[in-house]
Design a protein around this nucleic acid. Structure first.
Lengths: 195, 195, 195, 195
DNA sequence: CATGAATGAGAGTTCATTCAT
DNA sequence: CATGAATGAACTCTCATTCAT
C-alpha cells in the first residue's frame, strides 16, 4: 500500500481547511497551508496540481462528511439535526466560516459552487424525508413536504449566517424558540389530521 | 494628464461593487476597479487610502441603502419586503453575491463583519415591528415577536443562499409556498385571537 | 511687497529639514513635507519646481548659515568653534543627521555634493586662518597650516560621525581630551618658537 | 523557468552593494539589484524577506569583513591601517559611499545604525591597541590611549568624508602630512620618555 | 496663490507555479 | 516522494508631478 511519507492527502486537506478558516479567503495561500502542515509548497503541488484543486478537494471532503452524516439512519433524526445545527451555530463557527468562504470562492468556480449546491439539495431532501415521517400532513395548506425541507433548512442556514455576523446573537434562546416553532407546526399536523 | 473631477467617490463605489460581484473576492483587485471606472489606480488610492477602506466604503454604502429602505414607512410592509426579497433571490443575484463576498471578507475584518451584523439586526427588528402590526398574537406559543422577525429573516437569507448555489432552484414556486406559509401563520393568530 | 499667504519659502525649507531628519532620506517625501507644513503638495510645487530643487534649497540654506557663522569675526574663534562642534556632537544631532542625509543624497546629485564640499572647504579655510593667528609656527614639522585646518576639521566631523552611530559615545570626556590635544599642540608651537 | 542555484546569497549581497553605491540610497531598488544580479525580483525575496533585511545583510557583511581585517595580526599595523585608509580615501571611494549611504539608512533603522556603531568601536579599539604598542607614553598629557584611537580614527573618517565631497581634495599630499603628524606625535613620546 | 483631484511610473511584496535535484 | 531555489505576473501601494480651477 502506498504509505505517504510525511503527510497524507487527508491531513493536508485538514490543514488547508484550518488555514482557510483562520486566514480567510483572501489570505488563503498555499504557502500558509504548507507552513501549517509543516511541508514545503512543492509538496502541496505533489498532492494537488493547483490551488483550485485543493479548494475542490476541501469541498469534496465536506460533501463526503455531509453525505455520511445524512445517510446514517437515526431515530429522532429531526431532533438530532437540530442539535447538530445549534452546535455549529456560533460567531466563531469553524464550519460556517469554512462554508461561507467556499461559497464566496464558488462565485469564481462553477464546480465548487455546484458541489456546494448539491450539499444543500441533499440536506433539503433529507429534511423533507424526515419531516414526512413525522408529519401526517403538511402543517400549513399550500406548502408541500419538499418545500418544508427547504424552508427549514434555509432557516437553519440563515440563523447561522446571523450568528456568524453578530457577536451577541442569542443562539441558545433562539434555538429554544426555534424548537417551539417546530413543535407548534407538528401540533398543527395533528389538529389538521383530526379534522 | 491630471484632469480633475473625473469620478466621484460614489461612482467609484458602484464600480467597485460591480467588480467585486463580477470577479469575486479573490480576483477583486484595485486595478480591476480602476479599469472598470476608467481611471488610474492612483485615483482609487486618492479616494480610499487602502483596499480595506474601499471594501468598508462598499459596506457602508450598503448599510445606508438598507437603512433607507427599512426606514421608509410603507403600507403592507411585509408584502413589500417579500416581493423585494424574491426579486433578489436568484442564481445570479447581484445583491447576494455582493453580500456573501463581503461576509467572507468580514472574516478578515471585524469592522466589516460588525457592520454586516448591524444590517441583519436592523432587518430583524424591522420585520418584527411589521409582524407585530399584522399579528394580534404570536401564531405559535413560545415564539416571541422578536424571534419571529429573526426566524423569517433567516429564512429569506437561507433561501437566497440556496438560490445562489443551485442553478435550478425553483425560486418562484418556493416563494409562492413561502407566502402560503406566512398566510398560514397569520391565520393562526386569528384563531388564537378568537380563543 | 509680495507677502506670502500661508507659508514662506523659508518656513517650507525648515519644515523640509525637519522631515528629512525625522523620516530619513528614504522616506523623505513631498507629501510628508506638505503635511508637516500644513499645506498641500501643490504648494510645495509652487515654491520649488521639483523635489531636487527643494533638497538643493536645503543645502543652500545650510551653506548660508554656515558662511555667516564662519564670517562673523570672533575673539577666541577656535574655542568658539570647538564649543559649537561639541554642542552638535550627539547621537540625535539634528545637524549631523541632516548633513549626512544630504551627503548620501549628494551621491545622486553632483550639485548637492559640490555645495556640501564647498561648506567643508570653507570650514577648513576658516580653521586654518584661525589657527594661524594662534600658532606662531606649525606644532609639528611637515604639516602645513592649511593641512592643520583640514585635519582638525576632519577630526570634528569624524567625532560627530562616531557620536551619531554610537548611543553611548562619551562626547563630554572625548571633547575634554580633544581640548587637551589642541592645547598640547599649541604648547608645542611655543617650544618650537623658542628654539 | 525555475532553474535552481542561479545565485548564492553572498553574490546577491555583492550585487546589492554595487547597486547601492552606483544608484545611491534613494534609487536603490530591489528591481535594480535583481537586474544587476541577473535574476528576478522574486529571487531576492526568496533570500531576503524584505528590503530592510537585504540592507542589514550588507551591513553584516561589512562587519564581518571588518572584523577579519582588524583581527588579523600584522607587523606595523598602524602603517598598514594608514595605507589602507588612504587607498579608500577618494572622491569615488566605493567603501565610503557604501558606508555613508548605510549611515543615512541607519537613521531609519536602529539595527543598522547600531551595527555600524559597532564597526566604529572595534576600529577605535584596534587603533588604540596598536598605538599602545607603538607609544611608550601618551604624546600629549591629558589624552588617554583609548582617546587617541578614537581621535585618529575620527580623523581618518573625517578625511574620507572630505574627499568624498570634494573632487579636488588633495588626498596624496594630505595623507603625506597626516603621516608626518603621526610621526611627530610618536617623536613626542620619545621626548616625554627621556624626561 | 493655492488647492485638490488625477496621473503614471515604479516601488516593495506576494503568489501560484515549475522543476532540477 | 519531497524539497528548495527560482520564476514572472500581478498585487497593493507610494511618489513626484501636473493642471484646471
Amino acid at each position: 500500500m502506498a504509505k505517504p511519507n510525511v503527510v497524507s492527502k487527508r491531513e493536508l486537506i485538514q490543514y488547508a481547511k484550518e488555514c482557510l478558516v483562520e486566514k480567510g479567503l483572501e489570505q488563503f495561500t498555499l504557502r500558509a497551508v504548507a507552513e501549517t502542515a509543516g511541508v514545503t509548497q512543492g509538496t502541496i503541488y505533489y498532492h494537488f496540481r493547483t490551488k483550485e484543486q485543493l479548494l475542490l478537494a476541501i469541498v469534496r471532503d465536506i460533501c463526503e462528511t455531509s453525505w455520511q452524516e445524512i445517510a446514517r439512519p437515526k431515530e429522532d433524526a429531526i431532533a438530532h439535526a437540530l442539535a447538530s445545527a445549534r452546535s455549529r451555530c456560533s460567531y466563531d463557527s469553524f464550519f460556517h466560516k469554512l462554508f461561507l468562504s467556499l461559497v464566496a470562492s464558488g462565485f469564481n468556480n462553477e464546480e465548487i459552487r455546484h458541489k456546494l449546491g448539491e450539499i444543500m439539495a441533499a440536506e433539503n431532501e433529507a429534511l423533507s424525508r424526515n419531516l414526512s415521517g413525522l408529519w401526517a400532513a403538511s402543517p400549513i395548506e399550500g406548502v408541500s413536504r419538499d418545500t418544508w425541507g427547504i424552508l427549514i433548512n434555509a432557516m437553519v442556514d440563515g440563523l447561522a449566517l446571523q450568528a456568524v455576523l453578530q457577536k451577541d446573537f442569542p443562539v441558545e434562546s433562539i434555538y429554544r424558540e426555534f424548537e417551539h416553532f417546530l413543535k407548534g407546526l407538528s401540533a398543527l399536523t395533528d389538529k389538521e389530521g383530526k379534522k
